[in-house]
Write a protein that binds this DNA or RNA. Sequence first.
DNA 1: GCCAAAAATGAAACGCGTTATAAGATTTAA
DNA 2: TTAAATCTTATAACGCGTTTCATTTTTGGC
Lengths: 226, 226
Amino acid sequence: MSLLDEHKAERRARIGKVARQLVVERGYAGLTMRELAQKARVAVPTLYNLFGSKDAILVAELAESARVLAASLPPIGDSFFARAMVGFDAGTRAIEESPEFYRECMNMFLTSPETAEMRRRVEDAHIAVMTANLRAAKAAGQLADWATPEIVARHMFAQYMATLIAWGVGEIDLPTFRIAALSGVCHLLAGAARGPFAAEVEAKLRTLPTQYTHSPPDKKATRRST
Amino acid sequence: MSLLDEHKAERRARIGKVARQLVVERGYAGLTMRELAQKARVAVPTLYNLFGSKDAILVAELAESARVLAASLPPIGDSFFARAMVGFDAGTRAIEESPEFYRECMNMFLTSPETAEMRRRVEDAHIAVMTANLRAAKAAGQLADWATPEIVARHMFAQYMATLIAWGVGEIDLPTFRIAALSGVCHLLAGAARGPFAAEVEAKLRTLPTQYTHSPPDKKATRRST
DNA sequence: GCCAAAAATGAAACGCGTTATAAGATTTAA
DNA sequence: TTAAATCTTATAACGCGTTTCATTTTTGGC
């Protein structure tokens, strides 16, 4: 790596760090390019040279988080169900580490064209793992004959995302999110699972509260103005 | 209604109509308040007097659509499953009538603070219907003992919304959306349904394609710039 | 050490959503 | 008819993300 590229990387890192911090402090809308430039000791056009847009800066931070998360995934369990839970758990724990940041980035992540490719990558990775998992279940006769592994995997992912969004818009708080996401995924698996797999899912479902609090606004989020 | 209120209502209607048309033509970002004011023969501050914000104008249009939709709901069928399908079908048909408008409004609908109340209203209405429906199924012994009607209803709604979002961001096209949403809801019901209800769900699942095309970008949407 | 290429800089500008201000039009009530 | 109240209007402004441009700084090869 040349000196030039090194300095570029330094700047990128500095900008990303400050951006992340400012988003946590002031929210997505509260992060202004002019202030970011100043606090990162950089000129405004430099932000655009290095990243291209405001969203791209945060996407880069999200991508970094995803990389760290992927590298830290614990070894998978042995039952189909345990394996299915590992990914969801890891994602949820990552969010719990800096909820303000992820919540403020959620709108952007969902809607910015910058993130289209990243969304597809994240989704494909999740779905590939779950599909493989469910394929094994099917081979072991523990999946309904009408169930297609990939389709079930996609629906599970959709269920998780929908719950995530409910949290992102402030509809539910983080503990509720944990329960609701788990519940949703289990409900979905309950239909397709057979044999021991099904028993495991049902057992889990029985441990979940049947009346978790919905619509209890914890802090309002999304698009703060100052 | 006083003359003053009449004229106000006229202006509101005119603005809403033009806004809707402009969104269809140029997308959400392509709708500018200055142009809207001009085309609706109104001053810019009037837009803010009457609505409060750009998003609020489109929210009002969405609310109007929701009102029309709710009023046009066909009589419900007789089986639990048929009843569950009616709402989803009506919503999907509404979208198919003006996909450009709804697609462009989706980001805004999901993320704007203006829509929080409306989201809750729509969600509560859907969930109330489905919950009542599932309660009847439970009373008839056609629901698993671990299944809570309201929770299943919420998961169904989440599944539908997640698929809707996938369409909104351009991940899937409208025909795929129809299949995927139906498939997701059926997968969810398959776990909780018992007896004749379960048989109906499974029968439906067997009719759905097991390999519907995912990620075939039809027209890119979300945040056009001109 | 010098010179061409590459990149960062400061300052100004653009279009956007939104708001303030002052003046003009319209409705209401007497 | 007139006066008060209400709303619309035109215009200009603000802060935002983003871009342009000319200038300066930094880098890499000789």
